[in-house]
Computed example of a mutant assay.
Amino acid sequence: MKLQGKVAIVTGSAGGIGRGIALAMAKEGAHIAIVDVNEEKGKETLAEVSQYTEGLLIIKDISLKENVYEIVAEVVKKFGKLDIMVNNAHVSRQAPFIETTQDHLDLSFGTGFYPTFHFMQAAYPELKKSQGKVINFASGAGIDGQVTQTSYAAAKEAIRAISRVAANEWGPDGINVNLISPIALTPGVEQWRESAPQLYDAMINKIPLRRLGDPEQDIGQVAVFLASADSNYITGQTIMVDGGSIKLR
C-alpha cells in the first residue's frame, strides 16, 4: 500500500490511461478524485475505485480556469489535503503541418497545456504542505516529431518545458514534478486496431517489446512509483513508458 492515505486528483480518468492510473493508485490506498466531462464513464470508474478506497467524481470542464480552482478546493474540502496531482486529460486533432489551424492549436492547448498549467498553480499551496507529487504527460509525438501531430506535439512539449521549470523552482519545497510519455492500448486504439489491423501491426513491429502498454498494469504502475516515496529523489524527468520506442539521451 505505497499510497495509503494519500489524496490524488487524476484528470481525464473516466477512461483510458487516466482510468488505469486511478485504479492503480486506488489499489495502493490513495483516495482518488476522478475529474472528467464524461459522467457515465466517470461513474463506472468511481464504482471501480470505490472497491478499494474512497473516491470522488467531479464532472467539470477543465478548459475553464475557474473550474480548475474549484476542483482543487472541492477535493481539499472533501479529503482535507492534496498529495498527488496527475494531469492526464488532453484532446487534439490531427492534421498535416500546413493544414494545422488556430482552432487545432486552441483545442490542444486549451484542453492539455493550459489545464496542466492551471492545475499546477492551483495545487501548489496544498502540494507544498504535503511535499507532494506532480505527474504530467509528455508524448512521443512531440519528442520524436510525429507527422500530422503539430498541435498535440506543441502542447506536449510545452508541458515538458513548464514541468522542468517547476521541478527547479519547487524542489526546495519538497515537490517532485515528473512526466510520463506513454504508449498504451486504450479503447480508442482498440477501435483503430479493428478498423486498420495492418497499420496496427506495423506500429507494434516498431516497438521493441512488441506490444502496447496496459493503462493500469504498465502506465498506472509507473504513476504509482512517481507518486510514492520510492521516487523522492527523482524530479524534472520524462519517463518513457513506451516499450522502448524512444530512447532519450
Score class of each variant (00 low, 15 high):
Val75Leu: 05
Asp242Val: 07
Val134Leu: 02
Asn168His: 14
Pro96Ala: 11
Met240Arg: 13
Leu46Thr: 09
Phe79Gln: 00
Gly188Gln: 09
Leu199Met: 14
Asp106Cys: 10
Asn178Asp: 07
Gly12Leu: 03
Leu107Ile: 13
Val68Asp: 06
Pro197Asn: 01
Ser231Ile: 01
Gly236Leu: 01
Ala22Lys: 08
Lys43Phe: 03
Ile9Gln: 04
Ser181Ala: 15
Leu212Gly: 03
Arg164Thr: 11
Ser130Trp: 09
Gln121Glu: 13
His90Ala: 13
Phe137Arg: 01
Gln121Ser: 12
Phe119Ser: 06
Asp103Leu: 13
Phe97Ala: 15
Ala122Gln: 08
Asn88Ile: 08
Ala227Glu: 02
Leu46Ser: 11
Leu127Asn: 02
Val165Gln: 13
Ile21Asp: 02
Ala123Pro: 02
Ala138Trp: 01
Gly42Met: 06
Leu56Phe: 09
Glu216Pro: 08
Ala47Val: 12
Asp218Cys: 10
Ala30Asp: 05
Gly220Cys: 05
Gly142Asn: 02
Leu82Ala: 04
Gly174Leu: 04
Gly188Cys: 08
Gly213Tyr: 03
Asn88Ser: 09
Ile246Ser: 01
Lys247Leu: 15
Glu190His: 09
His104Lys: 10
Glu74Thr: 14
Gly18Ser: 07
Tyr200Ile: 03
Pro115Arg: 03
Glu194Arg: 12
Gly16Pro: 05
Asp173Ile: 04
Ile143Trp: 03
Phe117His: 12
Ile175Gly: 00
Gly236Asp: 03
His104Asn: 12
Leu199Trp: 06
Tyr69Gln: 14
Ser50Ala: 14
Val76Met: 06
Ala153Glu: 02
Gln131Leu: 10
Gly55Ser: 05
Ala167Lys: 00
Arg164Pro: 06
Gln102Asn: 13
Ile162Ala: 08
Ile159Asn: 03
Ala22Gly: 10
Gly16Ala: 05
Ala89Asp: 10
Val10His: 01
Asp201Gln: 15
Val75Tyr: 01
Ala141Leu: 00
Glu126Phe: 13
His90Leu: 15
Ile62Tyr: 05
Asn176Ser: 11
Asp173His: 13
Leu248Gly: 12
Ala8Ile: 03
Ser92Leu: 10
Tyr114Glu: 07
Leu212Met: 12
Val177Gly: 00
Val75Glu: 05
Ser231Val: 06
Lys65Ile: 13
